[in-house]
């Protein structure tokens, strides 16, 4: 049957670039940010894993607030300033994680980069790995066992200058 559905055009400033996405289907208004980002991007730094807000893989920053983009409706954040892991490409955080062995399959990593980057922007300097573990409790990683991640994240956060 012919495709005759209406289209909902959504717009956001994604990693400082204006992005326009056409969402189709009756449910298009309910699309989450993550789904909208994936609709047209070839490589989407926010990963969709659990689709229920339990794993943190889709974590992005929306207008300065960390959000799970698999649950946040796109329309509610129309025109928002969205930061994915791509916004931290210019920092040394990705290399520090890779060098520490904190990246295996890497599916959870972009979400963790956003979380760590956001903590750094807020001047958070955990004193122990256990304290950082508490701060990253929203994120699941099935590969690394977390130790190398916590080790690298703790060192990196404590090296950041307060902004």
């Amino acid at each position: 049957m012919e495709n005759t559905e209406k289209t909902y055009t959504w717009m956001a400033l994604v990693d400082s670039t204006p992005r326009q996405v056409d969402l189709t289907g009756n449910a298009s208004l309910a699309e989450a940010i993550a789904a909208a980002l994936q609709a047209e991007a070839l490589v989407d730094p926010s990963k969709i894993a659990c689709s229920e807000g339990s794993c943190g893989a889709c974590c992005v920053r929306v207008d300065g607030e960390r959000l799970l983009s698999c649950l946040a409706p796109a329309w509610r954040h129309f025109g928002a300033r969205i930061e994915t892991a791509a916004s931290w490409r210019a920092t040394d955080l990705p290399m520090r994680l890779a060098q520490a062995g904190a990246v295996q399959c890497g599916f959870c990593t972009p979400g963790l980069v956003v979380a760590l980057g956001d903590l750094a922007d807020h001047g958070v300097k955990p004193k122990t790995e256990a304290e950082l573990a508490d701060l990253l409790q929203a994120h699941l990683c099935r590969c690394t066992g977390y130790q190398q991640l916590l080790h690298a994240g703790l060192a990196w956060l404590n090296e950041q200058e307060n902004s």
Partner: peptide
């Protein structure tokens, strides 16, 4: 690391994408 850095930079497309 062959791909760890690219993954951390959000530059790797996985099969689900």
């Amino acid at each position: 690391l062959r791909d760890g850095l690219a993954k951390a930079r959000g530059e790797v497309a996985f099969g689900s994408e």
